[in-house]
Nucleic acid binder design. Structure first.
Lengths: 351, 351
DNA sequence: GGCCTGTACGACAACGTTGTCAAGGTCTCA
DNA sequence: TGAGACCTTGACAACGTTGTCGTACAGGCC
């Protein structure tokens, strides 16, 4: 037992690369096929103007030697500077929302032979800047980012360097690039209206920090819905600060301890929703206090009652963003992906 | 409304890269600083033998022009062929287990200035082969893969090309490379022993297809536990085929409809466990049939009863794999990461 | 002053590929 | 049969960087 209780067994000595010979190049293939290396280049790239017999000979030689083109040399030489590589900057690849988004990007990229760099920023602008620079150095063709707040100079620089920049999940003010967003405000409004339709007038809101764009939009939707129904906004029922996880439970406990507690809750993110559902369960209130959450999550239907949510479509966002990033760049667009209300029980509890 | 009900708004015409000038090179910086380009190269790489005054002048010129080294040219020229890039091949970046594993890799990579290519194979060997080739072409320094079954020739080739290969989650027979594994067999045995300790003797097993390594190991642990307790293996209680999700529910329904149904279930993967918990709920059996699942999952503690699991530590696996991939290559090792039993109620229901 | 040593810098080749252009051969048609 | 067009192939420069080597100059010593 060593590090972290991990057992490590030494298996064998690492041999030098089995064939000490370096990796074959165009010249090696050319020598074997008895042609010039430029002809091999043509065959490898499927360019026209090579006789069938020569193509066959070159193919054979390339296969025999296990030739693979050197991407660095290609990137260096190509006139258009394309590297068939894109960079992705997400908040957290471990979060189900971003994980699904990444999968959407990946699918489109793979179908076009594009490799994907991925990294998580954890909302740290410094990390975002460093990773953007690392991707610029590697000449990515496009950069898909869920931007942090603050300074977008590095994203602008990426665009200047010729990378196609596409923002997902949130826009960046003052940057004229493609954006793919969820309709946060309309979704949130829809969810709160759903609660109002079930007779609720004291509806608590628990969301993330207002410094986050999606958090602001979702709160705006909440305000709009109340306003449209003529219900005055009561800031005593609103909680918008602190870290996602630990503080959310405190917020719920706190709201439920009010002299006049809310009869329903609207939660602004999946992790908050889960925590809130847990907190209501602990207080045995899950069948009396209604809850609608933003973001769908695995198992929402297995809780009792099932959790009603406003579902986003992260997979579609990812696909759309990748198609934008890899498609023709005629003009910059903003795409808004709609949400879906999924009724499962918790949102249909009447006041 | 267009594609998928998505609203797309055209925002503006995409301008040509703001400064039509190409990106600055060593030569541009050299011209501005009044030195040779080789001197700039020395300054940029922090090599000794440059006088302080010249260093300052070069730094200033580089900053003024916004110089960033061209990674392709560096990779092409460097003697050791390092690109500060690694490739990661997972089964599915959208699955929480692999997402956490990827985050672990990412953290270690970022701390060392390494960029990470990520992609999902969905257990398709063809996809694994294609992506491996794409990464070889891009000269990754290391390849971290959760290998599919079958042909490992392409992984061997990656190793031949000088890439450090590290396997995670499952080994590949006949490949002498580093491996980082969960102790599947011991974990599974522990889980089944836990059920036996609570008086169960008819314990159902629902797992993934035996073609998957982890599935075989977990079943082996199940068999070992029964064997040690002197309980005969009853294949009528074992279900090991079909797709993860849809078929699992059928398997549970099927097991529970037996003349002598099992009093407890051991499930071999998170998705199966969730489905099984749902199926038991639908049959109102959640408080009568015990269940222990392999893999922890979000919300396992919010279900009623909470779901007892054998938890892996994917984050640790990722970190360990990345450290192996980026560290010194003295010998090949196999690291085994232990599991943890988390009691939450479902596994403590007595027979 | 001549010689040696060490330091600071520059010239140039090379990495493996793509783009440009030219050379040689075959074919067509007057 | 000769001119022109087309097709196939090769020679060579160039991409931006790092590695090797050479050169200029300052300082120390006899």
């Amino acid at each position: 037992m060593g590090f972290w209780g991990v057992t490590t067994t030494v298996m064998g000595t690492l041999s030098a690369p089995s064939t000490a010979s370096r990796r074959p190049t165009l010249r090696d293939v050319a020598a074997r096929a008895g042609v010039s290396f430029k002809t091999v280049s043509r065959v490898v790239n499927g360019e026209p103007g090579v006789s069938p017999g020569v193509v066959a000979r070159v193919r054979e030689a390339a296969d025999a030697l296990g030739y693979r083109p050197n991407a660095a040399a290609t990137a260096l030489r190509r006139a258009d500077g394309r590297t068939a590589t894109i960079g992705v900057l997400l908040e957290d690849a471990g979060n189900p929302f971003f994980a699904a988004l990444l999968r959407g990007i990946e699918e489109v990229a793979r179908s076009r032979g594009i490799a994907v760099f991925a990294s998580s920023t954890d909302l740290d602008p410094g990390r975002e800047r460093d990773m953007t620079r690392a991707y610029i150095a590697r000449q990515v063709d496009a950069l898909i980012a869920a931007p942090t707040e603050g300074d977008f100079a590095h994203l602008a620089q990426a665009a200047d360097e010729g990378a196609r920049v596409v923002l997902v999940d949130r826009p960046a003010t003052g940057l004229d690039v493609d954006v793919v967003l969820t309709d946060n405000r309309a979704g949130s409004r829809r969810g709160v209206e759903h609660l109002i339709a079930h007779g609720h007038r004291r509806i608590g809101f628990v969301g993330r920090d207002p410094s986050i764009y999606t958090s602001r939009e979702r709160f705006a939707g909440y305000v709009e819905a109340l306003d449209a129904a003529g219900i005055p906004l009561d800031m005593a029922l609103v909680r918008r600060e602190g870290a996602t996880r630990s503080s959310a439970a405190d917020h719920i406990d706190n709201l439920m301890s009010l002299a006049e507690p809310p009869t329903a809750l609207f939660t602004g993110q999946d992790l908050i929703t889960m925590t809130a559902a847990g907190a209501l369960q602990r207080r045995r209130l899950q069948d009396r206090v209604a809850i609608v959450g933003f973001d769908d999550f695995e198992l929402a239907d297995l809780l009792q009652p099932g959790v009603t949510v406003i579902a986003q479509d992260p997979h579609a966002i990812g696909r759309l963003a990748a198609e934008r990033a890899l498609g023709e760049a005629a003009s910059t667009t903003t795409s808004v992906v709609p949400t879906r209300l999924i009724e499962r029980g918790s949102g249909e509890i009447r006041a």
